[in-house]
Each structure stands twice: as structure tokens, then as C-alpha cells.
Simulated scan of single mutants.
Amino acid sequence: MTVDTGKTVVVFGGSGFLGRYVTQALAKRGHRVRIACRRPDLAYHVLTAGNIGAILPIQANLRYPWSVERAVKGADHVVNLVGILAESGKQTFSGLQAEGARLIAEAARAEGVNMTQISAIGADEGSNSKYARTKAAGEKAVHAARPDAYILRPSIVFGPEDEFFNRFAEMSRFSPVLPLLGGGKTKFQPIYVVDVAEAVAKTVDNEVAGGTVYELGGPEVLSFRQLMEEMLRVINRKRRFVSIPFSLAGSMAQFAQYVPGAPLTPDQVKQLQNDNVVSEEAIADGRTLDAFGIRPRTVDSILPTYLVRFRPQGQFTRPTRHAGGLDAENQDGLT
């Protein structure tokens, strides 16, 4: 049984993909975790991550300041993981990622505790992407309220419940082709969700310097095409690649965004036009995962642990080194 440290950490967005791993990392260290989310019943799956009674879901809505203040009351540290990839109804980029971050930071300041803000590589007030602009606005609001706050900017985060590899692996089960926006040349630095969660836990325990913006990336820089090729190799399938210019992808997304469950939005097309990797400035300043003393896991070492279900015969299919992607003009050997 983990020894209780007596420290209470409030995790906004703790019921989501990254949230469950952050909760596990904090509970493993003996901290008490208060999961603040709109629907506490959706956080019950995280209750077993720690000792009995150590994890408590609590209702909080970023549109209501009083609920944020109530959630933070009596805490020792606050973590904000709230973020969305696409707007829906009242769940807007500005409302959650900018204004929501400000409310949480001001509540933390009023309570006299520090906080950790999860942002994203590419956050930029001058970006043409609303997602990137509001992430930057959230960072600015957090540092205005808590100059000593921790800002973590991860590249694309992958793991068992991710919406990246799982989405394209599912698509490959039924579609004979996979799209490569802009030719699939956009570069990413995928980071394993457990590594990000451990970095968050280290900020809670003040193991790294606060008041800093850290950029977190995995050990490899890979293009979108290379990520798709690795995914196909793991699930033992061959699919055609079809290159779609960004201009055409933007037009397609403009119409598709009104269809429920649309795979891509115009804002996401804008984001994909820029590389998503740790900057040279962050590397030079030591503001990377190295500062946390974490050795990141590679994509090829983790994907087989959760994508096996997409193989033709599930876990009973032995992967072959010949599986992967093909250009549209090279259609031999499709399965």
C-alpha cells in the first residue's frame, strides 16, 4: 500500500485520456487526487488508481467560477489538463482553453497554491489556428496569475486510449486508402502518455524549476507518413496512401465539419501545416524532457501493446516486416 503524503492535488480534466495517467502517477506517489470534471460519474474508472478513498471525483464546470473555486478549496497543487480538439456547442476553444485556464489560475492564486498547465507545442498568439491561439492565451493567463506556474507543452501524445493511432487503425480496417494531408510531410515528436504523466507528477513535487515553459517530445522525430507506416506495420495491414493538398483538405473539412463525428476540422488542417516538434530554443535552454530525468519510450515499443486488436486476426496475427503503406500508384500486395 502506498504511503499517504497528505498532499491534495486537484486535477481538472482528470477523467480524460491524459487525466487517468496523471491520476495514476500522483496516486502512486501517495498523493490524494481530487478529479474536477463536469460529470463525476465519468471519472469512476480512475478510482482504482490509488488507495481506497484517495481519489475523489468532484463536479466542476469552467463556465461557473464558483464551482472552480470550490474544487480548488483546500488543495496543495492544481493541475489543468482541460483541452479540446474541436469545438462543440458551448465547449469552445476560448471558453475552455483561454478563459477556463484563467479561472483555474486565479482560483489557485486565491488559495495560495501553485499549478501545472498542460498546453501544446505550437501554442502561438499569432497562429492562424484558433486552437493554437487559445492555448497561448491560456498560458499567458496562467503566468499572469501564477508567475511560478509550470507550463508543459507536449507534442502529440499517444497511448492505449489516444485519438490518433486508434482512429487511423480503425479507419484502416474498412478503408483501402489512408489520406496524407500535404503529402504526409508534417513532422511530429510523439510522446508516450505515461511519460507526460510522470513529468506532471514531478512538477507537483517541485522536482523541476517553476515559472518555465517546457516542451515535451519523444525520442524520435517522425513525419505523418512515417507514423502511418509504423501503425500499419504493427497492425499487419497494407493500405494505399493518397496525398491530399492542404488547400483541398481545408475545403473538404469546411463542409465536413457540419457532419456529426467529422474526422477533421478546418482548424485541424491549419495545425497540420506546421511541424509539431520541440524547438531548438527549448533544447538549448534545457526546457525539455531531459530536465525531468525521464527516458521517453519509443513509438515502436508501445504501439504493439494496444494496437494488436486491429490486426486481421487480433493478437493471433504475427506481424510481418512487409506490412505498411503504399503510394496510390503502387497497388501491389494489398490485403
Rank of each mutant, 00 (worst) to 15 (best):
V11M: 05
G16M: 05
R20A: 14
Y21Q: 11
V22E: 06
Q24R: 14
A25C: 03
A27W: 03
G30T: 02
H31I: 00
H31Y: 06
R34N: 07
I35H: 08
C37K: 10
D41N: 11
H45W: 03
A49I: 01
I52A: 14
I55V: 08
P65Y: 05
P65N: 10
W66N: 13
A71Q: 08
V78D: 01
V79K: 05
L81D: 09
V82D: 06
I84W: 00
G89T: 00
F93T: 03
A98T: 09
R102K: 15
D124V: 03
G126I: 00
S129P: 09
A132I: 02
T134D: 15
T134E: 15
A136K: 11
A136D: 09
V142D: 04
L152P: 07
F158M: 02
E161N: 12
E163P: 00
F165H: 06
R173Q: 15
F174D: 04
S175L: 13
S175Q: 10
L178F: 02
L181R: 04
G184V: 02
T186R: 08
K187I: 08
Y192E: 03
V194Y: 01
D205C: 09
E207R: 15
E215S: 12
E215P: 08
L222Q: 10
R233E: 08
I235K: 00
N236T: 11
R240M: 14
R240C: 14
A249R: 01
A249T: 06
S251C: 09
Q254R: 15
Y258K: 04
A262S: 15
Q271L: 12
I294M: 07
P296Y: 00
R297L: 11
T298D: 10
I302K: 12
Q313M: 12
T317H: 07
H322P: 01
H322Q: 13
L326H: 15
D327W: 08
N330Y: 12
T335Q: 12
